[in-house]
Design a protein around this nucleic acid. Structure first.
Lengths: 345, 345
DNA sequence: TTCGTGTATGGGAACGTTCCAATATGTCCC
DNA sequence: GGGACATATTGGAACGTTCCCATACACGAA
């Protein structure tokens, strides 16, 4: 029936088939403005028969609104962002916006450029993007909201993130309540989350009068393993009373990956978890939740962060001049089998 | 300098500033056709000064080519797709195409519709999408390639996937070579991967004359744990010689998640891995690679699958009539500490 | 009647790019 | 000197929508 079966039907084809003007067809398809019920039905029927699919490019050009938001994910390998994206997606839908996803590691700054060429109405940065400060346009033409990073990486961007300092404090309180008096921290200095968690850790240890040791590790499993071996191995090797007395009874790692590395180290050293050593991580990743692992961790309110980000973003699209704003959300401690009172069999 | 500072510069602004026609500006910016070096430089300079960013919507309309490909991911929570997406992304770049990502669980069929409205030049389905058969358009106007699913879910789609039967056979060969003569399989009937792996398992056991037991489990950790408890628990409880003799010395789970569930079950039953029981999974997920877990698994050549998918897709964009085709890729066994000869201390 | 006002309807312009055809200007070779 | 051909440049049409404005009709109020 269409003139050229290879080419998709346009709104003109639909209008012609329904016997109305293209304007009426446009109005009927979008459900806005004044169209008689009879015409609306005729248009809808014609569209269905022709398999009409509106051309998003043409729509974006006509209306100067694309209805889409570019979402730049830090790293697909670390699925910690999933709840955040879910919350974000929900919030966007309510605002009539649709997300478009991309991976920063895969494409880098070209991704942001591409989204801007697609005329997204806003950009969402999820996580701390490597080198984003220099690679992203210093003055993006659309509002930017960053979620899950300790600090906005683009000047003027709004941010919603988790209170990592508070999360670390809660871990310390949990361990102290169990009776631990000497707690070690596997840190990741130089990273935003690392600094925030370290500060919270040191702060709360001092406040509670708990002895603290900090060892530089990093955010990966291997870094956690090495740091834990260095921390726990020396005492064990010497096998002196002093060495044992000095050894911390609990380790709080900067994230779950590092904690899992420490778990391996403990195993290698013959330390039982939690009898000889309590272990806590951060991020509440799926691996931590595995029954065979049972790692005490901190659950970021990421889903909520995503929802808040969507709201901020809708506000900023409606009123572009809005001032930068940073929202901190409270994390939640998830106590599991890797932490217990010292000496528990 | 621009007429209206709020509005982004267009190619007409650039052309005016460089003192050339819009056609020359277009040619210079794209680097095609004939433009003198002097004009090219003038145009590039003007574009930089104005912060010109081409409008993708207008470009797509003018050229009838969007240069993008819609990638529909089954589930962001299961990052097994990451290597596939990486390979795909690489391959697409070489073909001058750019991926746009979306999550099937988050948006469902509306996502495909949206991609088609954006006039993507092809669709890539990653994994087995829940209910895709009925929800996706039966006759999509663009080529469809499915990667990582045992069977294409859209009629006429090309598919590239891993040879799950062969992977299962390799696991059996590995275990048999270690000396195991009684191997159990935690299956997931009714799923595409489950059936393929079960078939390979049964096949190879029969070929090698190894006793096999199959227990229905599922694809999740909890399903694996329950099935393993039922399988291993009964014999252990009775504590009779017959019970022990009957107990399989190795368990091959349909995927890593189920294997990790079985790992928990073994721990609960006091079975040591690999001394009392060898354990193998499938997919070679990050969790399996954790040193504290060390799960023998099968590595799908997912990265390669992504690259192959990109090539198939470029072919099909160039020649739309191409026949459906299915490519099977060979998986690789990753032996780790969870498998050993029976009775190894 | 005449004037608004709410409801319908359609024609034309606009959006920003690419593509195409038309037109110059050489430059080389017979 | 005159095609043939590569190089260079340009204006106009086309892409498929939405938006704006002009128009038409009906109805009630002044």
């Amino acid at each position: 029936m269409p003139k050229d079966p290879a080419k998709p039907a346009t709104i003109l084809d639909v209008a012609a088939r329904a016997g109305v003007s293209k304007s009426a067809a446009s109005l009927a398809l979008r459900g806005t403005g004044y169209v008689s019920a009879a015409k609306r039905e005729a248009v809808l029927a014609a569209a269905a028969e022709l398999g009409y699919r509106p051309n998003a490019a043409a729509r974006a050009m006509g209306s100067a609104r694309s209805g889409t938001v570019g979402v730049i994910l830090d790293d697909l390998r670390n699925p910690w962002f999933v709840p955040a994206v879910e919350g974000l997606s929900e919030g966007l839908h309510e605002a009539g916006l649709r997300p478009l996803l991309g991976d920063w590691r895969l494409e880098g700054a070209a991704l942001a450029e591409r989204f801007l060429e697609l005329r997204v109405e806003a950009l969402v940065l999820v996580g701390t993007l490597d080198g984003a400060e220099s690679a992203l346009p210093a003055l993006p033409p659309v509002p930017v909201v960053q979620v899950g990073a300790a600090q906005a990486q683009v000047p003027g961007a709004a941010a919603v993130t988790n209170d990592d300092g508070e999360g670390a404090r809660r871990v310390v309180r949990h361990l102290a309540a169990l009776g631990h008096r000497r707690i070690a921290h596997l840190a990741a200095r130089g990273t935003a989350v690392g600094e925030a968690r370290l500060a919270g850790f040191a702060d709360e240890c001092a406040r509670l009068g708990v002895a603290s040791v900090t060892v530089e590790a990093g955010l990966t499993e291997e870094a956690g393993r090495r740091a834990a071996l260095a921390l726990l191995g020396s005492g064990a090797r010497e096998d002196t009373p002093r060495g044992d007395a000095d050894r911390p009874t609990a380790v709080f790692a900067v994230n779950d990956m590092a904690a899992l590395g420490a778990l391996s180290a403990a195993e290698e050293l013959g330390l039982r978890i939690p009898a000889d050593l309590s272990l806590a991580g951060y991020d509440d990743t799926p691996a931590a939740r595995l029954r065979a692992v049972g790692l005490t961790s901190v659950d970021n309110a990421s889903r909520e962060a995503g929802r808040v980000a969507a709201r901020m973003l809708a506000d900023r699209i409606a009123r572009p001049g809005l001032a930068p704003e940073t929202v901190l959300l409270e994390p939640e401690l998830k106590a599991r089998s890797s932490t217990a009172a010292p000496g528990t069999p």
